[in-house]
């Protein structure tokens, strides 16, 4: 059986050699190479994983092989979909939207008062560095086991990063631009809508992007403290208890796909909204 292990190592070496050749070769700046090199690296990691688990006979309760995880994933799509809807759509997404809107409105209010801004920014920065997941047991106690408590945890987790970033962003215009608005006799709302909000958007999206991962983490971790009999966090904790690790990994695969897709979606919206920003201009 250890043949498989040897072959997987051979594949890793061959793929690495190919990658080195491609990365230092002629077409190293082409889009295709930029895609193929990381993809090949990821694939070779998967192959080595498979080779180690199969070739060296690692028991499935310690580390299941990628192929076994994929089989479990395909066999349980219905359960996984229900968990996904419970945790992501009901808990994380609703909490994310509520938290983002609340943070945005509070940021607009805070921005109007210099005193409030100087008081709230350090507090917000401090809160953003705290282990906020710790409030999960309290909120589960208050809002019950269903998605409401998960959404509440997510609201608190995403609130401060978005608040701090939005307040920073609203200060991002420089004196010259604000003076120009004054010479146009623009009132507060006009200058907010036409100058300061658009200028704040790169900061706002920075906060929104950071929060995508936090939202998913918050919803999953909150389920460890109590949940209905579905949900990704519930499934992970119960299947770990049964040592059915292939199911746990399938759930992690779902979380990874959901997390990347969510992040990718927010990044896509960002590239549409802030098309004018230097970091969004197409390179070359």
């Amino acid at each position: 059986m250890s043949n498989i292990f040897g072959w997987s190592i051979a594949f890793l070496i061959a793929a690495s050699a190919l990658n080195i050749a491609m990365a230092n070769g002629e077409g190293r700046d082409q889009a295709l190479t930029r895609f193929v090199v990381p993809a090949l690296f990821g694939a070779s990691l998967l192959v080595v994983w498979e080779g180690i688990t199969r070739g060296l006979g690692v028991p499935g309760v310690i580390l299941p092989a990628p192929s076994a995880i994929w089989e479990t994933f395909q066999a349980n799509t219905e359960t996984l979909w229900k968990d996904f809807v419970q945790t992501f759509v009901k808990g994380a997404l609703r909490g994310y939207v509520i938290g983002a809107m609340a943070a945005f409105l509070v940021a607009l209010l805070v921005d109007r008062s210099d005193f409030l801004r100087r008081g709230l920014l350090p507090v917000g920065n401090f809160m953003a560095a705290l282990p906020i997941v710790g409030i999960a047991p309290i909120l589960v106690m208050w809002f019950g086991f269903d998605w409401q408590s998960k959404a509440a945890v997510v609201v608190v987790m995403v609130f401060f990063p978005i608040l701090v970033n939005t307040v920073e962003g609203l200060r991002a215009t420089d004196r010259m631009q604000r003076d120009l608005m004054t010479t146009y006799a623009a009132n507060y709302w006009q200058s907010l809508l036409k100058l300061r909000l658009p200028a704040a958007m790169p900061f706002v999206f920075n906060g929104l992007k950071i929060s995508t991962t936090l939202a998913l983490i918050g919803a999953i971790v909150a389920e460890f403290f109590g949940s209905p009999i579905q949900g990704m966090g519930f499934r992970i904790s119960t299947e770990v208890g049964r040592l059915a690790l292939d199911m746990v990994w399938a759930e992690i695969l779902v979380a990874a796909i959901a997390g990347s897709a969510f992040y990718g979606f927010v990044a896509l919206v960002e590239s549409i909204v802030t098309f004018w920003h230097p970091s969004q201009r197409r390179r070359r």
Binding site: T213, G233, S260, G264
Partner: peptide, 17 residues
């Protein structure tokens, strides 16, 4: 070229789970 995209992508995954 090979590792950096994965390092960035891994930030979007809820590792804590």
């Amino acid at each position: 070229m090979a590792v950096m995209p994965w390092a960035i992508a891994s930030q979007t995954i809820p590792i804590l789970a």
